[in-house]
C-alpha cells in the first residue's frame, strides 16, 4: 500500500506550527514598524513581508511542502494566469491612467 502513504500528508508536530505562528507574528510586528516609522521603500518592504507571510502560510499551514509534486507545480498555473492578466491590463492602464 505504498500508494496510500504517498497520498497522505504526515502529521505535523504542534511545535512546528508554533514556530511558524511566532515567525508570522514577528513579521507582522516588523511590517507595522516599517510603516509607522515611514521607512524608505515602506510599500516595497510591506509587500515583501506580505509575500513572506503568504509563503509561510502556503508551505507550512497549508502543507504545500508535503503535497504531491503535481500540486506543487500546478499552483504556478493560476499564478501565471494572474500575472498575465496584470501585465496585459497594465499594457493599457500604465499609459492611460497615470495619476
Amino acid at each position: 500500500m505504498s500508494e496510500r502513504k504517498e497520498n497522505e500528508i504526515p502529521i505535523v508536530s504542534y511545535r512546528t506550527f508554533f514556530y511558524i505562528w511566532i515567525a508570522l507574528l514577528v513579521l507582522l510586528a516588523i511590517t507595522v514598524a516599517v510603516a509607522v516609522m515611514n521607512a524608505a521603500h515602506a510599500l516595497g518592504l510591506n509587500l515583501l513581508i506580505a509575500f513572506l507571510m503568504a509563503w509561510l502560510d502556503l508551505f507550512f499551514f497549508m502543507n504545500l511542502r508535503h503535497e504531491r509534486l503535481f500540486l506543487k507545480i500546478i499552483i504556478l498555473l493560476p499564478i501565471f494566469a494572474y500575472i498575465s492578466i496584470i501585465v496585459l491590463t497594465y499594457s493599457d492602464a500604465f499609459y492611460r491612467m497615470a495619476g
Binding site: L88, S91, D92, A93, Y95, R96
Partner: peptide, 8 residues
C-alpha cells in the same frame, strides 16, 4: 484604451 495595448 492605449495604443500600446492595442498593438499587443
Amino acid at each position: 484604451m492605449s495604443d500600446n495595448a492595442r498593438v499587443v
